[in-house]
């Protein structure tokens, strides 16, 4: 590690972005527990959520360490307000129906795996270690989500209609995950994170191949909806945080 990471803002942002994406998606997916259409999918969703929350603990733990102000993973998760969250807008989109939840998961997983795989080569060993651990989990999340996208897309008329509807609604949010800002550029220059253009190529190719097999078509001319990475969120995040943070806000310092 060649950089002074004690007060490294770009690295702090990277770990928040990775951690907040995992946290908000994990929180949303966990709401399916007990509600999925079949038992196997209920278990799959709960397990996926569990992996994401576990990854959150690693990322936000490191974020607190880098920040150096004594904030732990739990403090960052439960005591920040919306504007301090750095997740992409896609993960805060509502669960909707099962098809919409799956489509959101697939568009996320298809980014998550190449991103984590590239982060295994980060110049910061701590980032590389978390990426190594998480990439294995992201790989099987993607296997499941793309299998189901194909099965339901290339399925009955009704399932295809629903998956196309989910895609039309979520497609504008997929681009933000690989849209680089100056923080991403700085991270890439220093070898701390990959150039997002490379990840975008892999993200787009994977999505294209799966959608083709699923007989689904991305909407044309849709603008990229962005802002989450910079702390500018949709109103959905406020409701998610109100639910997630309620206990720590009402009873500060409560523990099991």
């Amino acid at each position: 590690m060649s950089v002074d990471v004690k007060t490294d803002n770009a690295l702090f942002e990277l770990t928040l972005r990775m951690g907040d994406n995992a946290l908000i998606l994990g929180q949303q997916v966990s709401a399916w527990c007990g509600h999925a259409p079949v038992l196997e999918e209920d278990i799959a969703l709960a397990n996926t959520a569990l992996d994401l929350i576990g990854q959150t603990t690693l990322w936000l733990g490191l974020a607190g360490e880098i920040e150096g102000k004594g904030r732990r993973a739990d403090d960052l998760a439960f005591l920040r307000d919306t504007r301090a969250f750095r997740n992409a807008l896609i993960v805060e989109q509502p669960n909707g129906n099962f098809g919409q939840t799956l489509m959101r998961q697939f568009l996320f997983d298809a980014w998550h795996l190449p991103m984590l795989t590239a982060l295994k080569s980060s110049a910061d060993k701590r980032v590389a270690d978390i990426a190594e651990k998480s990439a294995k989990e992201a790989a099987y999340h993607l296997e499941r989500s793309e299998d189901l996208i194909i099965r339901l897309g290339d399925g009955s008329d009704e399932s295809r209609r629903r998956m196309q509807y989910a895609l039309d609604g979520l497609w504008p949010f997929a681009g933000e995950l690989t849209l680089a800002d100056e923080i991403d550029a700085a991270l890439a220059t220093r070898g701390l994170a990959p150039a997002l253009a490379d990840i975008q190529t892999q993200h787009v190719e994977r999505i294209r191949a799966v959608l083709k097999a699923a007989t689904l078509k991305p909407p044309e001319g849709a603008p990229i909806r962005k802002g989450g990475k910079a702390g500018m969120h949709s109103e959905h995040l406020g409701f998610i945080l109100a639910d997630m943070q309620w206990l720590q806000r009402a009873y500060p310092g409560a523990t099991w």
């Binding site: 999918e41 397990n47 499941r144």
Partner: peptide, 13 residues
Amino acid sequence: EVSRFGSTPCKAS
């Protein structure tokens, strides 16, 4: 295989 996920994260059904 019934499901890639099972009773614990490490198992499939």
